[in-house]
Design a protein around this nucleic acid. Sequence first.
DNA 1: GTAGGGTTAG
Length: 659
Amino acid sequence: MALSKPYFAHLRSLKPVPLPFHGGGRLRIAAPPLRLLSFATPEEAAAERRRRKRRLRIEPPLSSFRHQPSPRPPPSSKSPNPNAPKLPETMSALAGNRLNLHNRILTHIRENDLEEASLLVRHSIYSNCRPTIFTCNAVLAALLRQCRYSDLLSLHRFITQASVVPTVITHNLLLQAYCDCRKTDTALEHYRLIVKDDAALNPSPTTYRILVKGLIDNNKVDQAVDLKNDMLSKGICPPDPIVYNLLMTGFLNNDEPDRVLDLFQELKEKLGVGDGGIIYDGIVYGNLMKGYFKKGEDKEAMNLYDLVLGEGSKVRFGAVSYNLVLDALAKNRRLDEAIGLFERMMKEHDPPKRIAVNLGSFNVMVDGFCLAGLFEEAMDVFKRRMGERTCSPDVLSYNNLIDQLGKNGFVAEAEELFKQMGERGFNPDEYTYVLLVESCFGAGRPDDAVDYFNKMVESGLRPNANAYNKVLGGLASIERLDEARGFLDRMAEREVPRNVQSYEMLLNAFCEAARLNDALKTLKDLLMDEGVSLSEEMKELVEGALRKQGRAEELGKLFEEVEREKAEAAARAAEEKERAEALAKEEEERKKAEAAAKEAAAARASAAAIEAVLGRKKKTESKEEEGSSPANTAAIAETKEEAAIKNEADEALGQGTAS
DNA sequence: GTAGGGTTAG
């Protein structure tokens, strides 16, 4: 094996580390020559961590593999049953030139060149230096972070085709992608595949966290509870306070505070802390307090607060669990206590040792102050306090404060923040602009609202139907109907799928203004749009408006006209399809004939050659060779599911689906 | 960088 050449070719990126390994693929652990306190590159740091781990022989916990009664050297030894589920490679596979490849790919990821990173995985997979599953996971994770779901799915499909054995993390990344695309059913299907009897891997606590969160976010609390029970009955993962906390969020959203308390009790039992005992993970207490507040039992909520955050409490709180309590206080008329807790958090914060505050803490305080009408204080938290802890806002926190200010009439302040975003290099997103559009309409500045909308489009963002509806509805409400109608047309031009509100707002306004011709035209557009359907109320509204002017019969005529046009369109489509099919068939026959001719010619040529050499006749057979590697093409082809998700992912980037 | 708890906009 010629290992040294590609190895040296990439050595440049790893300069100061002395060669820990060399040719033959065998690992030679040299003691690090000198203790480096810091590393020139992240790869070096990672390499050092890996070396140390290897020295300690840390491998994945045995509990994560199934069908493994006793530890034995896994994949390399010949498996007695070739059909047995394969175990993923262990960390020790990440060595030699495969480690080199890993580092190269990580460099691309760091440079944000995911294109190149994925390509490198794809290209090397059939080479003599296969990427490890850890390398694949790194690329998948990077794609996930960038919300590039369709690329993630297609890469995942590719490595699966190529029989790279996944780890739990691979599964979790995929589940996360499905959940992010709101495809919880697909995620659950995949989960069942993981826990199938003959699968090699166990789910991890994170598996359940991802799935339960996905289900809760999609308001499928009952399914989430089922999954939690499944987790408990399998006995692989311990009862997880995080999962319970997520479920508590679900019940709070559903206005079922009693079930929040029940969950807390259940968790206590499962963790084996007696009635007088205490759960030491602070993550559950914010939601538990919210449960009490929702029941109107403020006293219990505050008693709990004193208990878990009072003097001598042993309950552990991090930034996230603090934030939940902070939110519980701030949203339930306990702003003073919230301020007190916030100050305590700020004092405790001592990175990297102790992280007691994060961006969320500031967002919660901003919300709290705004809720109490203290906008000065909210802006102070945002502008000054955040800086004290070297925290900087992101687009989301800007949007949050812009929203609060705009809604409450502080439009100038909201615009000031918007300007600041630009100066600080944060790119406003669709929401930012939509919030400003709303604020301006609210402040009686429709022209500025339209300007912001146009600015959004000019900056390359792709507003969805909801964003269009904001400006369309705003214009309609002040009777600038032609302009509003113009935005409906722009949606068609820019291929933004309209939703039913897009039409209804206009229809309403046209009927109100007794502009019936325009109303009928809009109604016809609605009826011709396959993506929406006419509601009964809308129909009655238009009917009534027509009747008032003695034009009632026009509605029926319009329906007939639409029916006819739709039928015509359908007929045209059918014809088109038939023609395409005929064409395809013809093409197929032509290919067949061509192949047959080729075969015959080959047979003749071969026969002639043999005849020429041997001087006698002989029957010959010849076969066409397969053109391309089937695994390759299969991996590149997208399944229907993937196409659907791709669509959705694209829409999500263009600001979500209609509903 | 082998993922992973909370908060917002539509």
